[in-house]
């Protein structure tokens, strides 16, 4: 009986502590500030305290440690779409998270395969963009087509659509989510859509370009519009 009480109280204590832990803010990193002469009179010599240079008598200046500038490999910036943690099916039948696309420049669009009006033109717009990108940049690029009709657009269907539209190359990815995850994704892209009949959706025609960290860099709105800016953005990002 006593054992049980002790066990229980320990359990409660651990739970309480554990919930507190997550609240702790990260330690300030400026404890490790390093100072250096702005003229570098003594080469790369550094000091741990503020003061003046023994050679030129100028005030020592703090050096920003490089770590604070470069994000940790695993860190995701606040503006990144990789903050979305939902799981998606690809046309190859794999399960991925958006974060798995990290490291490549992403060109994303939302479509559905049964669409007869705007989507073929949107898809054509995507292919036109691809055609204007030099071979060398293509390997750093991913074209991602997200279905807004996750019920109809199964991985098999997406695969068939990819083959039919000559978009089966490695740089093309098709994604099937759930109703909730697609809605959330559309909200990040500011894409609006609504099912207007069982077969048809009306939706905004927006092509979005993301950098390798998943941050939105450019959006092209409308059908068959001049894609010069979009391509310039992509070329800059893949250089």
């Amino acid at each position: 009986m006593k054992y049980f009480k002790i066990l229980f109280s320990v359990f409660v204590l651990v739970m309480t502590l554990a919930s507190c832990n997550s609240n702790k803010s990260e330690k300030a990193s400026d404890e490790l500030a390093v100072y250096q002469c702005p003229m570098k009179c003594e080469g790369e010599k550094t000091y741990s305290e503020a003061g003046s240079c023994p050679v030129c008598k100028m005030d020592l200046q703090p050096i920003e440690s490089e770590d604070s500038k470069i994000l940790n490999e695993n860190d995701i910036s606040d503006e990144s779409i990789f903050n979305l943690t939902s799981t998606w099916n690809t046309e190859e039948g794999e399960k991925i998270q958006l974060e798995d696309l990290k490291g490549k420049t992403l060109v994303m669009v939302m479509i559905y395969t049964t669409c007869k009006a705007a989507c073929p033109r949107l898809v054509a717009d995507m292919r036109n963009i691809e055609a204007k990108i030099p071979e060398t940049s293509l390997k750093d690029l991913r074209f991602v087509l997200v279905s807004i009709d996750p019920e109809t657009d199964t991985p098999e269907r997406l695969k068939a659509f990819a083959i039919e539209n000559f978009m089966d190359g490695e740089q093309w990815t098709f994604l099937q989510g759930t109703e909730g995850s697609v809605r959330e994704f559309a909200n990040v892209l500011a894409v609006k859509y609504k099912q207007i009949s069982p077969m048809d959706f009306s939706h905004s025609n927006i092509i979005s370009v993301f950098n390798t960290e998943g941050e939105l860099m450019h959006q092209q709105e409308g059908l068959g519009v001049d894609n010069k800016e979009t391509i310039e953005t992509i070329l800059q990002l893949t250089q």
Partner: peptide, 11 residues
């Protein structure tokens, strides 16, 4: 009727 939407006239 801007090119931004398909089906916008239906709504």
């Amino acid at each position: 009727d801007s090119s931004l939407f398909c089906g916008s006239a239906a709504v």
